[in-house]
Amino acid sequence: GSGINGLQPLESTIPDTERFKDAANLKLNCPNCSATFDFGGIVASNYYSMSYNGLQCKKCEHLFAPLQINSQLERSIRSHISLYYAGWLQCDDPTCGNVTRQISVFGKRCLNDGCTGVMRYRYSDKKLYNQLLYFDSLFNCEKNKNCELKPLYHTGDRDFPQEKLNESSIKALTEQNRNLFESNRSVVQKYLSDCARRYVDMGSIFDFMQQR
Protein backbone atom coordinates (compact mmCIF):
# COMPACT_ATOMS: atom_id res chain seq x y z
CA GLY A 1 0.00 0.00 0.00
CA SER A 2 1.23 3.47 -0.82
CA GLY A 3 -0.74 5.19 1.96
CA ILE A 4 -3.58 7.63 1.67
CA ASN A 5 -2.30 9.22 -1.55
CA GLY A 6 -2.38 5.89 -3.35
CA LEU A 7 -6.03 5.35 -2.55
CA GLN A 8 -8.18 4.85 -5.60
CA PRO A 9 -11.95 4.56 -5.71
CA LEU A 10 -12.95 0.91 -5.41
CA GLU A 11 -13.05 -0.25 -8.99
CA SER A 12 -16.49 -1.81 -8.65
CA THR A 13 -18.00 1.64 -8.00
CA ILE A 14 -17.00 2.83 -11.47
CA PRO A 15 -19.99 2.39 -13.85
CA ASP A 16 -19.45 -0.29 -16.49
CA THR A 17 -19.90 2.22 -19.32
CA GLU A 18 -16.79 4.02 -18.08
CA ARG A 19 -14.84 1.02 -16.89
CA PHE A 20 -15.30 -0.98 -20.09
CA LYS A 21 -14.93 1.87 -22.59
CA ASP A 22 -11.76 0.30 -24.04
CA ALA A 23 -12.98 -3.31 -23.90
CA ALA A 24 -13.42 -5.06 -27.23
CA ASN A 25 -16.88 -6.27 -28.16
CA LEU A 26 -17.74 -9.96 -28.18
CA LYS A 27 -18.10 -10.90 -31.85
CA LEU A 28 -20.27 -13.88 -32.68
CA ASN A 29 -20.63 -15.74 -35.94
CA CYS A 30 -23.94 -17.33 -36.89
CA PRO A 31 -23.14 -21.02 -37.49
CA ASN A 32 -25.97 -21.23 -40.00
CA CYS A 33 -25.65 -18.14 -42.25
CA SER A 34 -22.17 -16.85 -41.27
CA ALA A 35 -23.48 -13.41 -40.36
CA THR A 36 -21.19 -11.83 -37.76
CA PHE A 37 -22.36 -9.37 -35.14
CA ASP A 38 -21.45 -7.85 -31.80
CA PHE A 39 -23.16 -9.40 -28.81
CA GLY A 40 -23.97 -6.98 -26.01
CA GLY A 41 -26.28 -8.91 -23.70
CA ILE A 42 -30.07 -8.56 -23.72
CA VAL A 43 -30.14 -5.30 -25.62
CA ALA A 44 -31.65 -4.12 -28.89
CA SER A 45 -29.72 -5.11 -32.01
CA ASN A 46 -30.45 -5.25 -35.73
CA TYR A 47 -28.55 -8.53 -35.91
CA TYR A 48 -29.71 -10.73 -33.05
CA SER A 49 -32.42 -11.08 -30.51
CA MET A 50 -32.72 -12.95 -27.25
CA SER A 51 -35.76 -15.15 -27.53
CA TYR A 52 -37.31 -17.22 -24.76
CA ASN A 53 -35.30 -20.14 -26.17
CA GLY A 54 -31.94 -18.43 -26.38
CA LEU A 55 -29.92 -16.36 -28.79
CA GLN A 56 -31.37 -16.02 -32.28
CA CYS A 57 -29.84 -14.71 -35.52
CA LYS A 58 -32.12 -12.09 -37.06
CA LYS A 59 -30.91 -12.79 -40.59
CA CYS A 60 -31.71 -16.51 -40.76
CA GLU A 61 -33.58 -17.12 -37.48
CA HIS A 62 -31.05 -19.78 -36.41
CA LEU A 63 -31.27 -20.50 -32.69
CA PHE A 64 -27.76 -20.87 -31.21
CA ALA A 65 -27.07 -24.02 -29.20
CA PRO A 66 -25.34 -23.08 -25.91
CA LEU A 67 -22.09 -24.73 -27.12
CA GLN A 68 -22.18 -22.58 -30.26
CA ILE A 69 -22.03 -19.46 -28.08
CA ASN A 70 -19.70 -20.84 -25.42
CA SER A 71 -17.11 -22.11 -27.88
CA GLN A 72 -16.86 -18.68 -29.53
CA LEU A 73 -16.80 -16.95 -26.16
CA GLU A 74 -13.99 -19.18 -24.92
CA ARG A 75 -12.04 -18.79 -28.16
CA SER A 76 -12.40 -15.02 -27.88
CA ILE A 77 -11.14 -15.01 -24.27
CA ARG A 78 -8.17 -17.14 -25.27
CA SER A 79 -7.30 -14.83 -28.19
CA HIS A 80 -7.18 -11.93 -25.75
CA ILE A 81 -4.98 -13.87 -23.31
CA SER A 82 -2.67 -14.94 -26.13
CA LEU A 83 -2.41 -11.38 -27.47
CA TYR A 84 -1.57 -10.25 -23.94
CA TYR A 85 1.19 -12.88 -23.77
CA ALA A 86 2.57 -11.82 -27.16
CA GLY A 87 4.12 -9.12 -24.96
CA TRP A 88 4.00 -6.06 -27.20
CA LEU A 89 5.68 -3.07 -25.59
CA GLN A 90 5.28 0.59 -26.40
CA CYS A 91 7.48 3.58 -25.54
CA ASP A 92 5.57 6.34 -23.71
CA ASP A 93 7.53 9.11 -25.42
CA PRO A 94 5.23 10.23 -28.26
CA THR A 95 8.17 11.49 -30.34
CA CYS A 96 9.64 7.95 -30.23
CA GLY A 97 6.66 5.62 -30.45
CA ASN A 98 8.84 2.50 -30.39
CA VAL A 99 6.58 -0.57 -30.61
CA THR A 100 8.41 -3.85 -30.16
CA ARG A 101 8.43 -7.25 -28.49
CA GLN A 102 12.08 -6.78 -27.53
CA ILE A 103 12.71 -6.37 -23.78
CA SER A 104 15.89 -4.71 -22.53
CA VAL A 105 17.56 -6.38 -19.53
CA PHE A 106 16.56 -3.09 -17.87
CA GLY A 107 12.89 -3.74 -18.66
CA LYS A 108 11.50 -0.22 -18.80
CA ARG A 109 14.39 1.21 -20.81
CA CYS A 110 13.60 2.16 -24.42
CA LEU A 111 15.92 0.52 -26.92
CA ASN A 112 15.93 3.42 -29.36
CA ASP A 113 19.23 5.31 -29.15
CA GLY A 114 19.09 8.22 -26.74
CA CYS A 115 15.37 7.87 -25.96
CA THR A 116 14.52 8.42 -22.30
CA GLY A 117 10.94 7.18 -22.64
CA VAL A 118 9.53 4.37 -20.50
CA MET A 119 8.47 1.07 -22.08
CA ARG A 120 5.11 -0.39 -21.05
CA TYR A 121 3.10 -3.42 -22.08
CA ARG A 122 0.70 -2.23 -24.76
CA TYR A 123 -1.85 -4.82 -23.60
CA SER A 124 -1.66 -4.28 -19.84
CA ASP A 125 -2.82 -6.81 -17.30
CA LYS A 126 -5.37 -4.24 -16.11
CA LYS A 127 -6.81 -4.05 -19.62
CA LEU A 128 -7.00 -7.84 -19.86
CA TYR A 129 -8.69 -8.09 -16.47
CA ASN A 130 -11.23 -5.46 -17.54
CA GLN A 131 -11.81 -7.32 -20.79
CA LEU A 132 -12.67 -10.48 -18.84
CA LEU A 133 -14.92 -8.51 -16.49
CA TYR A 134 -16.66 -7.02 -19.52
CA PHE A 135 -17.37 -10.47 -20.98
CA ASP A 136 -18.59 -11.51 -17.52
CA SER A 137 -20.98 -8.55 -17.35
CA LEU A 138 -22.69 -9.54 -20.62
CA PHE A 139 -24.04 -12.70 -18.98
CA ASN A 140 -24.70 -11.22 -15.55
CA CYS A 141 -28.45 -11.51 -14.98
CA GLU A 142 -28.63 -8.65 -12.46
CA LYS A 143 -26.79 -6.25 -14.75
CA ASN A 144 -28.95 -7.27 -17.69
CA LYS A 145 -32.15 -6.74 -15.72
CA ASN A 146 -31.00 -3.37 -14.39
CA CYS A 147 -29.90 -2.28 -17.90
CA GLU A 148 -26.39 -1.55 -16.59
CA LEU A 149 -24.50 -2.99 -19.55
CA LYS A 150 -22.17 -0.96 -21.70
CA PRO A 151 -24.22 0.04 -24.79
CA LEU A 152 -23.10 -1.48 -28.08
CA TYR A 153 -24.17 1.48 -30.18
CA HIS A 154 -24.58 5.22 -29.82
CA THR A 155 -27.20 7.39 -31.48
CA GLY A 156 -26.11 8.10 -35.01
CA ASP A 157 -24.13 4.84 -35.44
CA ARG A 158 -24.84 3.13 -38.73
CA ASP A 159 -25.97 0.01 -36.86
CA PHE A 160 -27.99 1.82 -34.20
CA PRO A 161 -30.95 -0.52 -33.54
CA GLN A 162 -34.24 0.43 -35.12
CA GLU A 163 -36.38 -1.21 -32.44
CA LYS A 164 -36.11 -0.73 -28.71
CA LEU A 165 -36.47 -3.27 -25.92
CA ASN A 166 -38.60 -2.31 -22.97
CA GLU A 167 -37.55 -3.00 -19.41
CA SER A 168 -40.23 -5.55 -18.61
CA SER A 169 -39.38 -7.74 -21.58
CA ILE A 170 -35.67 -7.52 -20.67
CA LYS A 171 -36.54 -8.75 -17.19
CA ALA A 172 -38.64 -11.61 -18.52
CA LEU A 173 -36.06 -12.61 -21.13
CA THR A 174 -33.29 -12.58 -18.52
CA GLU A 175 -35.19 -14.99 -16.30
CA GLN A 176 -35.96 -17.24 -19.25
CA ASN A 177 -32.27 -17.38 -20.22
CA ARG A 178 -30.87 -17.69 -16.71
CA ASN A 179 -29.52 -21.23 -17.22
CA LEU A 180 -27.89 -20.29 -20.49
CA PHE A 181 -26.27 -17.19 -18.96
CA GLU A 182 -25.00 -19.20 -16.02
CA SER A 183 -23.23 -21.58 -18.37
CA ASN A 184 -21.84 -18.63 -20.42
CA ARG A 185 -20.66 -17.00 -17.25
CA SER A 186 -18.93 -20.15 -16.01
CA VAL A 187 -16.69 -19.98 -19.10
CA VAL A 188 -15.55 -16.45 -18.18
CA GLN A 189 -15.23 -17.32 -14.49
CA LYS A 190 -12.87 -20.19 -15.36
CA TYR A 191 -10.31 -17.62 -16.57
CA LEU A 192 -11.10 -14.95 -13.97
CA SER A 193 -10.25 -17.57 -11.33
CA ASP A 194 -6.71 -17.81 -12.73
CA CYS A 195 -6.26 -14.06 -13.23
CA ALA A 196 -3.56 -12.92 -10.83
CA ARG A 197 -4.57 -9.27 -11.05
CA ARG A 198 -7.85 -9.94 -9.28
CA TYR A 199 -6.00 -11.30 -6.27
CA VAL A 200 -3.38 -8.58 -6.21
CA ASP A 201 -6.15 -6.00 -5.99
CA MET A 202 -7.46 -7.77 -2.89
CA GLY A 203 -3.96 -7.80 -1.45
CA SER A 204 -3.54 -4.06 -1.70
CA ILE A 205 -6.80 -3.48 0.14
CA PHE A 206 -5.55 -5.63 3.01
CA ASP A 207 -2.21 -3.76 3.03
CA PHE A 208 -4.12 -0.56 3.54
CA MET A 209 -6.13 -2.00 6.40
CA GLN A 210 -3.01 -3.20 8.17
CA GLN A 211 -1.54 0.30 8.01
CA ARG A 212 -4.47 1.64 9.96
Binding site: L28, P66, R78
Partner: peptide, 28 residues
Protein backbone atom coordinates in the same frame (compact mmCIF):
# COMPACT_ATOMS: atom_id res chain seq x y z
CA UNK B 1 -7.80 -27.28 -29.59
CA UNK B 2 -9.16 -23.80 -28.83
CA UNK B 3 -7.85 -22.61 -32.25
CA UNK B 4 -9.92 -25.25 -34.07
CA UNK B 5 -11.68 -23.37 -36.93
CA UNK B 6 -15.09 -24.78 -35.98
CA UNK B 7 -14.73 -23.42 -32.44
CA UNK B 8 -13.99 -19.93 -33.77
CA UNK B 9 -16.96 -20.12 -36.13
CA UNK B 10 -19.28 -21.68 -33.55
CA UNK B 11 -20.15 -24.39 -36.04
CA UNK B 12 -19.89 -27.23 -33.55
CA UNK B 13 -22.12 -30.11 -34.53
CA UNK B 14 -24.96 -31.78 -32.74
CA UNK B 15 -23.80 -35.11 -31.25
CA UNK B 16 -26.68 -37.47 -32.09
CA UNK B 17 -25.55 -40.28 -29.76
CA UNK B 18 -25.72 -38.00 -26.69
CA UNK B 19 -28.91 -37.56 -24.69
CA UNK B 20 -27.86 -34.17 -23.36
CA UNK B 21 -25.70 -32.01 -25.59
CA UNK B 22 -22.45 -30.53 -24.24
CA UNK B 23 -22.81 -26.89 -23.12
CA UNK B 24 -19.16 -25.87 -22.95
CA UNK B 25 -15.85 -27.06 -24.41
CA UNK B 26 -14.97 -28.63 -21.05
CA UNK B 27 -18.28 -30.45 -21.24
CA UNK B 28 -17.49 -31.53 -24.83
Amino acid sequence: DVTHPMIAAGTLPHFPHLKSQPQTLDDL
